[in-house]
Simulated assay, not measured.
Amino acid sequence: MFPYNVAEFVPIFLEEDEALEEAIQRSLLEESDRQSEVHISRSFKKLSKEEIEGLLRAHSEKVITPGTRQLHISRANVWSTALRQFKRPKFAESCEMLYVTFASDEHDTEEDAADLGGPRREFFRLLVKAIFQDSGAFEATPNGCTLKFNILHLQNGVYRTIGRMLSTIIVQGGEAPAFLSPHVVDYIVSGDILQVHLTPDDIGDPELRENLKKNPSLRVLLDLSGEDKDLTASLIAGVLRPSYSVLGSNRRVREELMVVKFREFLQCVENKELRDALGERTLTKDEEAFVKALRPGHILAFATGSSKVPAIGFQPAPKITFIHDESKHLPIAHTCANELLLFVNETTMADDDAFHYCFLVALMNGALFSTI
């Protein structure tokens, strides 16, 4: 038995863009001739069930065009037969009412019932169940269904097709698909992952869910923070430990100076002072943009491939290695070894902005501007 109650559903308007919401708002305006003002910005959560039904009915009348779309469905294979149809571009682009015919698997013939609404509503009921049970796109949690990470579904557009199915079900009078976990609904409504509030009961894996309840400290590994405030210049300096030459050697003195320069660079990045540290140096438009967006996490990602310290720490331990070579200037990273190579020479040791600029160029060449 499917574990969730359809009656608890609050309709969520699923579309690929904001067209549906805009249409609903226009409908609200048109149906409010007797009101001088309509507050479009009020939350849909404040609307009564009757108001929501009225808005949805008005939108349905506007978007559904005359004619019908033929749909042949096998009751024994609702998901596969529906998916095949909804993935067809012409079928998906049509706004006509569905005309559903069920195939009789026992006699290999079509059922006689004409679709005057009943077969379509039955199909929608079966399709909702198939989406959440048979599609492989969702998993059940105590709070409702949450999305599975299915790379094949993502590549093949199945998640997008499911969105079309749910939109069609809602607009064409099917049972409301009231099975989504609140955190999924939060994301659909807000579009902002930082507005999503999770609890252990939103986890599908029973063992992990119970461990989270027993050991709340594990939440630090799973909760999404709004900003990596703990990823500071000091932390990164502590993670990337210098591998110095022997104490007392001439190389050691030069290497210590390079560490001072590196930590100054980290501090400039954290404090958003790098542009000032580069003085009157002329930067390209791309370099200017890079400097503005640069954060300490980029430096850690450059050296290790990870913008955060892994839960089990780095293996092997990150380090800074010094190369005494006058011919090279740009830092190099060996991410497999968690190793940052700094070149020690007259250019990088000069009392100017050369070291900072060399590091900036190295970071840009390292293609670090993925989201971290």
Score class of each variant (00 low, 15 high):
Gly297Met: 01
Thr348Asn: 13
Arg69Ile: 09
Ser135His: 04
Glu256Ser: 09
Thr146Trp: 01
Arg263Cys: 09
Tyr244Ser: 04
Asn271Ala: 14
Glu227Met: 07
Pro310Val: 02
Arg295Thr: 15
Glu31Ala: 10
Ser27Met: 11
Val10Leu: 07
Gln155Tyr: 09
His329Ala: 15
Lys45Gln: 15
Thr101Phe: 02
Ser74Ala: 08
Pro216Lys: 05
Leu300Lys: 02
Leu257Lys: 10
Val189Glu: 08
Phe314Val: 00
Thr81Leu: 03
Ile131Met: 01
Gly144Asp: 07
Ile372Lys: 09
Leu283Asp: 08
Phe9Tyr: 15
Asp115Lys: 02
Ser217Trp: 05
Arg57Trp: 08
Arg252Asp: 04
Ser245Pro: 00
Phe290Ser: 12
Ile236Pro: 01
Ala333Asp: 04
His72Leu: 14
Leu363Asp: 01
Ala317Cys: 07
Ile170Ala: 05
Glu210Asp: 14
Ile320Glu: 00
Arg57Lys: 13
Trp79Gly: 03
Ala114Pro: 06
Leu257Ser: 13
Asn5His: 12
Ser245Ala: 14
Pro119Gly: 07
Gln70Ala: 13
Leu240Ala: 10
Ile332Trp: 00
Gln35Ile: 07
Thr141Phe: 04
Ser48Met: 11
Thr321Glu: 10
Ala317Ile: 00
Ile323Leu: 11
Arg57Pro: 01
Gly118Thr: 13
Asp201Arg: 13
Ser27Arg: 12
Glu139Pro: 01
Glu37Phe: 13
Phe102Met: 11
Gly248His: 09
Ser370Glu: 11
Arg281Asn: 08
Ser74Lys: 04
Val158Glu: 10
Lys292Cys: 08
Pro310Cys: 03
Arg84Cys: 06
Arg120Phe: 06
Pro177Ser: 09
Leu224Thr: 14
Ser167Phe: 10
Ala140Trp: 01
Gln172Arg: 00
Leu47Arg: 05
Ser60Tyr: 05
Phe124Thr: 00
Ala233Arg: 00
Ala317Tyr: 00
Leu28Asn: 08
Trp79Phe: 12
Lys87Ser: 14
Ala113Tyr: 04
Ser234Ala: 15
Lys129Cys: 10
Gly238Thr: 02
His39Val: 14
Asn211Val: 05
Thr347Glu: 13
Leu266Tyr: 06
Glu21Lys: 14
Gly173Trp: 01
Ser245Thr: 05
Met1Tyr: 06
Ser104Tyr: 05
Asp186Val: 02
Gln25Asn: 12
Asp202Glu: 06
Asn271Lys: 11
Glu96Leu: 10
Phe102Asp: 03
His329Gln: 11
Pro200Glu: 06
Thr161Met: 00
Glu122Asn: 09
Asp105Cys: 04
Asp223Lys: 04
Val196Gln: 08
Leu180Lys: 04
Ser135Trp: 02
Ser306Leu: 06
Asn211Thr: 11
Lys292Phe: 06
Asn211Gln: 13
Glu264Trp: 05
Leu29Ala: 07
Lys62Trp: 03
Asp115Asn: 05
Val239Glu: 10
Thr371Tyr: 04
Val184Tyr: 02
Ala237Ile: 03
Ile312Val: 11
Pro216Ile: 07
Glu264Tyr: 12
Tyr357Phe: 15
Thr232Asn: 01
Gly117Phe: 05
Leu221Phe: 12
Gly174Pro: 00
Pro316His: 07
Tyr357Cys: 11
Asn271Phe: 03
